[in-house]
Computed example of a mutant assay.
Amino acid sequence: MAKGLGLGCTYGKACMSWVLVFWYGGVFIRNGQTDGGKAFTSLGQSFSNLGAFSKGKAADYKLMEIINQKPSIIQDHLDGKVLPEVNGNIEFKDVIFSYPSRLDVRLSNFSIFFPAGKTVAVVGGSGSGKSTVVSLIERFYDPNQGQVLLDNVDVKTLQLKWLRDQIGLVNQEPVLFAKTILENIL
């Protein structure tokens, strides 16, 4: 219904605009300011933009659909756990995950242990899930199944703001400011 009303209004406005252009073009022709050929050429050029309006309307509908979604991860959730001490052991247990917009691409039965104080490399080709692992630790997404644990505590039970305050991250393409190394890290 909304799509029908939206398209009806869009095309209705377009038709009313054409009527206005025809009338105004007729006024110019009657006053001798232009001839019919030039008036219709200008009119034809304006018609070519109609497709852009339709595409914009369709994009607007999709964008509003995304904006109106309710997030599954509540950012101001203050009643979660706060660990008194963080050792930093991170473990993925049988994690299955796929992005909501790419259900066909999956991280399946992913299990790994990142011991505190050790250097661990996660390597793989483009699109293999390296950045997804980081997004799951930071709880930008929750796994469809399985658990992400920080010191044997499921990160879903932790206070989100507190969890993210415990994490320092330098992305694979960092933006560096014209400051000292320390100021960039801060």
Rank of each mutant, 00 (worst) to 15 (best):
F47T: 12
V86R: 04
K179A: 14
V123R: 00
L136H: 03
F92L: 08
W23E: 13
A116L: 07
W162H: 05
K38S: 11
G44P: 00
P115Y: 08
F40Q: 05
P100D: 13
W162L: 07
S72N: 07
S46V: 11
G6H: 06
Y99Q: 03
N31R: 13
D94E: 15
G146P: 10
G124Q: 07
G127Q: 10
A59D: 08
G12I: 02
I185G: 03
M1F: 11
N152F: 02
G88C: 09
V95W: 13
G129K: 02
L176V: 13
P143Q: 11
L149Q: 05
E173L: 04
K93F: 09
I73H: 03
L83M: 11
S128W: 06
G4F: 10
G36A: 12
F177R: 03
E173R: 07
I74K: 06
G44K: 00
L186P: 00
D165V: 00
F92H: 06
I66L: 15
K3P: 04
S126Q: 08
G129E: 13
G125S: 12
M16A: 08
F97H: 09
L150R: 01
T180I: 09
Q166H: 01
G168N: 10
L5R: 02
F177H: 02
F110R: 02
K13G: 04
K161V: 05
K70Q: 12
D142M: 01
L182D: 09
N87E: 15
F97A: 04
D142Y: 01
K57V: 11
A116R: 10
T10M: 13
K55N: 13
V21W: 07
R139T: 06
G125V: 14
I181P: 04
L182R: 15
F110H: 03
P115I: 06
S48I: 08
K179N: 09
C9R: 02
M1R: 08
T132K: 01
I96L: 12
I112W: 01
D94R: 10
F97D: 05
I167P: 09
F40P: 00
V21E: 12
Y141G: 03
W18H: 07
V134L: 14
L158C: 04
F140N: 08
K130S: 08
T157Y: 07
V175T: 14
G51A: 12
G37V: 09
S108H: 11
L186W: 05
G6N: 10
S72E: 15
N87P: 02
S131H: 07
L186T: 13
K93L: 14
N87A: 12
R30H: 10
N89P: 02
M1Q: 10
V175S: 04
F97S: 09
I66R: 14
W162C: 05
V86L: 10
L160C: 05
A58T: 14
I181H: 02
A116H: 07
Q166K: 06
H77P: 00
G25Y: 06
V21H: 06
G4M: 05
V133H: 03
K93V: 15
